[in-house]
Nucleic acid binder design. Structure first.
Lengths: 190, 190
DNA sequence: ATTAACTGCATCACTGCTGTTGCGCTTCGT
DNA sequence: ACGAAGCGCAACAGCAGTGATGCAGTTAAT
């Protein structure tokens, strides 16, 4: 609705948008209350340029959220959630998502209003996530009586905790720990 | 150091401090950037009174963090982490902490500087938490090879996710789910 | 090569939050 | 009952962030 007449930007303008969004993620992740001045400085751009590309602070944050949500959705799709064997898909999706969420933590935390593009994409991600869990359950990897919505939320929480504590570990190792913990917990191994 | 000459407050002043801290938690949890004006209004107090009791916004937030950290430490202690059977202690501590963290979410998220009272209390809570996990491991409830620091972090993440999604469920039911998920994950039950 | 778009810079107005002070009234402590 | 401590209210100064504008110089697209 809002960007109906979005005529194409010139190459340098498009580059400005990109560097501003990247800088905004870095700066706002460190301090959510940081000023647009700081964002502009981190982007190597004048503050007025930020205002030229994004009508308001809110518009910038929304664009940031949408951008990150697209990357996240792509990361999930790349794991073939509908066709790959569940365990393979879970591992691959987890490794992908860890990288995207690590690089776009602030953007993905912004709760977009339910009508926005970011919220749509997030719902789609949730849907695909549950799909994988259902397929895992059908294969006996997850208890038949388990509440899949709770399992999904636990999965998200494990991702978040991994990123909080292990900012730059090997994605495959971290993903293996997440999946293992999700499926088997901390209890004794037979 | 800072509050060396803290002569006792009059009863009404102490009451002001209490209602301001409670209001600050409510208001700042809803919007971390809210003004002291809003906090004062929610507390039913004039803005100048807030400034009288807390020299600056930062001082208010620190006092809030310390206050909440004390409650959290008490909640853990109440579960007898050193003496009760591990599973009993885990359940009781979880139920207690769910209530405290639910009521003081914002305050407990404030990362105090390492020298403050809040940080000391948080470290003490971490320590007692690991103690319980060690006792659980010694009883065979947790795998002998498990990384207890990771287990503790998973435990915290499960608490956080529970509070995010189930704001006001029965603490005992929610605690049971947290402990069960922590120890056994989502996999099939024998 | 020409034009339209873009950027940086300087400047301005506006807003909202913070922190302080002074004064009169009320409430607590003893 | 008395005095000290606390409160609400009003007013003020200061500051930072936001958003807008005009202009001169640069860059991309045809």
């Amino acid at each position: 609705m809002g960007e109906a007449t979005a005529r194409p930007l010139r190459a340098d303008a498009e580059r400005s948008v990109r560097v501003i969004l990247e800088a905004a993620e870095r700066v706002l992740a460190a301090d959510p209350g940081a000023s647009l001045e700081q964002v502009a400085a981190a982007a190597g751009v004048a503050r007025t340029t930020v205002h030229r590309r994004f009508a308001s602070r809110q518009a910038l944050v929304e664009a940031l959220a949408s951008s990150a949500a697209r990357r996240l959705a792509d990361a999930v799709d790349d794991g073939r959630p509908d066709t790959a064997p569940p365990l393979v898909a879970m591992h691959r999706i987890t490794a992908n998502v860890l990288q995207v969420k690590g690089a776009w933590a602030f953007a993905l935390e912004q709760a977009a209003e339910p009508s926005g593009e970011a919220a749509d994409l997030q719902r789609e991600v949730d849907r695909r996530c549950v799909t994988v869990l259902e397929r895992a359950r059908d294969e006996g990897l997850i208890d038949a009586a388990a509440d899949l919505d709770w399992v999904r939320r636990v999965y998200y929480a494990l991702l978040g905790e991994t990123l909080r504590g292990d900012p730059a570990g090997d994605p495959d190792v971290l993903a293996a720990r997440v999946v293992d913990t999700l499926l088997r917990g901390a209890g004794p191994r037979p």
